[in-house]
Design a protein around this nucleic acid. Structure first.
Lengths: 315, 315
DNA sequence: CTGTTAGCGCATTCAA
DNA sequence: TTGAATGCGCTAACAG
């Protein structure tokens, strides 16, 4: 590994002082166009790139952020992360990934490590049980995903909208006995809000609600569909595609495939395995991008902590 | 963000010199037990942690490695990464994640960025089309996953073993007409080796081979099963669980579910959706851990470039 | 507009 | 066994 060039070398090679090089590097004003060009030429020619650690030490951030997902194999989170990464790279940020496995303790542990490392910011995929107190120190450098909390920046999906779209679609197709499979209310967004939206639609359209809230896992969908099925049921709305996958398996096994399925979450896997299921894309891609930009805005320009809601789209 | 403590502060607080603190920090010899204890006590008490950037600037390594996966939503790679991350954290390394999307160009682009950042090492999930030339500069700080190349450290799955186990199992169950669904030979491991192992088993057991090698995608499995089905076929072996998922859907739709499926790759999704499929775990978890340890060994102690093969396990 | 100077937090000489 | 001094690559304050 041959020793890399430093601004000192660039300065010598282009016949200027170190600080001038530094100014060019940081796009600061106060450098004549001619000088700037010359220095830039030399830098290009030698493929110069400044030492991150040295910059970091000088107080600048070292441009590292963390993304804490609940699980690496979460289909929906993956879709958001997939757009997050390029957005972060583009701005020169290195994203390090961590897995919380839905454990508040792991989150706390990870955040501790991140603080010791002097990381710039965190994008955290929220879940039930996280104590907001431990997030407090990160208030200004944190973006919460899929969950909102007062005093924190966040990017949420439009839970109500998604459910409404799906319910309307089913309703328009003639369904009047629509059951619901969701998540307990401890989960405010995926659980409470989606369930409430379902109930609201039922109320407005004279539908008798019939819901169960087993949880997030595929198996829970599979095990608990039966509870919401009546002889009259013609459609089933699932709060997540994972639940729908589980439910679908059950319905198939029981030869109940005339029951129309709908779900929030439009993952490639779903699209392939069950294209017949009506899905809404909660805007994962857009959410990922929004979160990245929000975080960068906060840490680099002290941008205000917005609570963003991305719109859903019927597929 | 209150200004963090430095070794200078620790030195003052414990009444020693900066360099002594530095020595304690790095577990260097030449410090009396008493002094060491005292300094360590002060550090603990103040939760001192040294500035990464400053260390990086003095030494060389800033303890950052990159993991380049083909796709964030690859089920198998996820399982390996899941054990990689903790192993890396444990050793104080920050893993940054990148996605190649099976594009050699993206790999090159990513590696370029990583070199500019002065990253310590890379774990790269291999795929067809990567030019070894661009990997050359990383020879000593790279671990290749799921692919081997002379002159590079690597962690591979036991392709032959996995296929053998599955074929034996099917054979013992009485199957004599076993077809194969795989991946083109351009992919040396998942493609060539697994196919060859299938052919070898057939040869040794008087089975008439019947194979198609459409590719890695679920849809390709779905579309091409039909080509390997004969009226006599009783079992189908798939090179990956993704293919099996596709094939399974087809068989189900065609009411051919009496055909026994087997596949390499034991992901949670498979286990839930199709527990009836015989699977082999190629040792993803172990592979992830092995790769992390190998990489760290290389970059921190110049460990030799081993080519590791992890064993498969019948589920 | 530009060069010189002085640190940032740490590891590493070199003396003591 | 220890502390003081030096410099890593860079930015910021201050002179010119």
């Amino acid at each position: 590994m041959q020793t890399r060039l430093t601004i000192k070398d660039i300065a010598r090679l282009s016949g200027v002082g170190k600080s001038t090089v530094s100014r060019v590097l940081n796009n600061e004003s106060g450098v004549s166009a001619r000088t700037r060009e010359r220095v830039e030429a030399v830098m290009q020619q030698h493929e110069f790139s400044p030492s991150r650690s040295a910059r970091a030490m000088r107080g600048q951030s070292d441009k590292v952020v963390a993304i804490i997902v609940t699980r690496l194999d979460s289909l929906s989170e993956n879709l958001a992360v997939q757009t997050m990464l390029p957005s972060l790279y583009e701005q020169g940020y290195d994203p390090i990934m961590m897995e919380s496995q839905f454990s508040p303790d792991m989150v706390e542990e990870h955040l501790g490590m991140l603080r010791r490392r002097n990381i710039d910011g965190v994008i955290l995929f929220g879940f039930t049980g996280i104590d907001e107190k431990i997030l407090q120190p990160w208030r200004s450098t944190l973006v919460l995903m899929a969950r909102d909390a007062s005093g924190f920046a966040s990017v949420c999906y439009d839970d109500e909208g998604a459910i409404q779209i799906l319910m309307s679609t089913l309703y328009q197709q003639g369904h009047r006995d629509i059951s619901f499979l969701g998540v307990p209310h401890g989960d405010v967004t995926t659980g409470y809000r989606r369930h409430q939206a379902y109930l609201a639609f039922c109320r407005d359209h004279d539908i008798v609600p019939n819901a169960a809230l087993p949880g997030l896992a595929m198996k829970q969908g599979y095990d608990h569909v039966v509870e919401v099925l009546t002889p009259k049921t013609t459609a089933l709305l699932c709060a997540t595609d994972t639940l729908a996958l589980g439910a679908s398996k059950y319905l198939q096994q029981q030869n109940l495939s005339e029951i129309k399925l709908a779900s929030v979450g439009n993952t490639p896997l779903m699209k392939f395995l069950h294209p017949e299921i009506i899905t809404v894309d909660p805007g994962y891609a857009e959410a990922g991008r929004a979160a990245a930009l929000q975080l960068i805005g906060q840490i680099s320009q002290g941008q205000q902590l917005r609570q963003i809601v991305v719109p859903s789209h019927l597929q």
